[in-house]
Design a protein around this nucleic acid. Sequence first.
DNA 1: GTGGTCTAGACCACA
DNA 2: GTGGTCTAGACCACC
Lengths: 137, 137, 137, 137
Amino acid sequence: MDSGNPTIRFRLDRHSGLPVYRQLVNQVRHGIQIGVLRAGDKLPSVREVVSQIAVNPNTVHKAYREMEAIGMVRGEAGVGTFVSAQPQQWVAQDLESELRAALEAWIANALSSGLSTSVIVSMLNQASTMLEQRVSR
Amino acid sequence: MDSGNPTIRFRLDRHSGLPVYRQLVNQVRHGIQIGVLRAGDKLPSVREVVSQIAVNPNTVHKAYREMEAIGMVRGEAGVGTFVSAQPQQWVAQDLESELRAALEAWIANALSSGLSTSVIVSMLNQASTMLEQRVSR
Amino acid sequence: MDSGNPTIRFRLDRHSGLPVYRQLVNQVRHGIQIGVLRAGDKLPSVREVVSQIAVNPNTVHKAYREMEAIGMVRGEAGVGTFVSAQPQQWVAQDLESELRAALEAWIANALSSGLSTSVIVSMLNQASTMLEQRVSR
Amino acid sequence: MDSGNPTIRFRLDRHSGLPVYRQLVNQVRHGIQIGVLRAGDKLPSVREVVSQIAVNPNTVHKAYREMEAIGMVRGEAGVGTFVSAQPQQWVAQDLESELRAALEAWIANALSSGLSTSVIVSMLNQASTMLEQRVSR
DNA sequence: GTGGTCTAGACCACA
DNA sequence: GTGGTCTAGACCACC
């Protein structure tokens, strides 16, 4: 009914390797951080998302459940899903520690595969450099 | 019984998240790269591996089949499994490209979460530095 | 439920001596060759195949993995398994070269058994003729 | 002891795809057919064969057991293995029917893989022709 | 002893 | 629902 303000539009990168539900969570988080989404804003309904990006409803459900579990968002039955109050602070911290852990896991994998430390270091440096150039492009 | 040349001993990291059979493949690849395994060398039999690292025979078999499919190794029924001739070239590329892809996915995840490029870059640099210090320790 | 497009139905020859998983691979290859299966078409799910031909899920999975390793097919977790784009070229060669090798082995066996070449030749011709008549029957 | 007359020397084709024990059987059969081996002739002992062609003793045993089961040969404990009397007739017939069955199986495989009859026929004819040319070479 | 195939089941992440 | 990994065990041909 109150579909007037679409608040956020999801987009999908099918080739990124990232799980779909994770992309959705990330985009909401991103929206909150850059101010597109504010406390109390309504997220599109599951059905709307499904028609937008042609994805399985269960996948959207999972993303919404995940966000709710973190406290990023609150779902009210029969009404909709809304951005929580003051989610900004921990959102960022939570994300960083999660990413840091993932990067640690990546390094552990590389080491346990027998790659030399110097090669791993150079891969990290190379990625870092590429990223810096991409932004100044 | 006295198989004399133990060629390679597998070790398992149960917490790495990497599938067991992939760990085995990586370790053989590693062994070939550092010269512990050479063309014609015999890998331990499936049953030997099973008794070494307490894993299901099928899992080991799966790893061996994978290596054979890539051409890294050749299995002869009733005889054993042997390192192929001239496997060196692609061996290195395979593993590195896999890890590079995983790192790219990590960056994609970070970017799509709304993390600023500078933060990501600093995380990469920090990890790289930590790794270098760990080796000189 | 109403998956509508049955794309391919597997059949099994339990007495052919060919491993079940190889029969499945061959039949998909055949389906692609005769145009029943085209790029992007969905293969029946592992569980569907299981209920069709009464075989263990792992066996079907093995066949699907084999096809994926060759590049004939691509499996997406949670979605299904789909025929790859442009698989036609090598598809034909693969099967034929395999059969040709088997026929060479048969001849080698016959020769090394001391059968005269003329007898072998006549056996081949006889088989060939029988096959032609069977088709015009 | 009576190693004076070596009667038959085995050779192995490692790339033929034929099982080793089968090659041994075939060679004895061949030897009988061309008259190199006659009724009562002694086959080399398992140990002699092992030292000749570097093969597992069990493999030689299996070949000898197989020949004995067919009646081609008779083993006397502590003495040796000897060619049976009048083995020629059925030896040939037995072999031919066996080969014919194998060829039928090959055709069945080809058909069940979805190869067209005409392609199979042409493969057979091609093999037959190649074989004829090889002999007139 | 060796690897190869298959069955019968479990649990997981993802859609 | 989908495929992916793994366990526990069987039987086979071959060495």
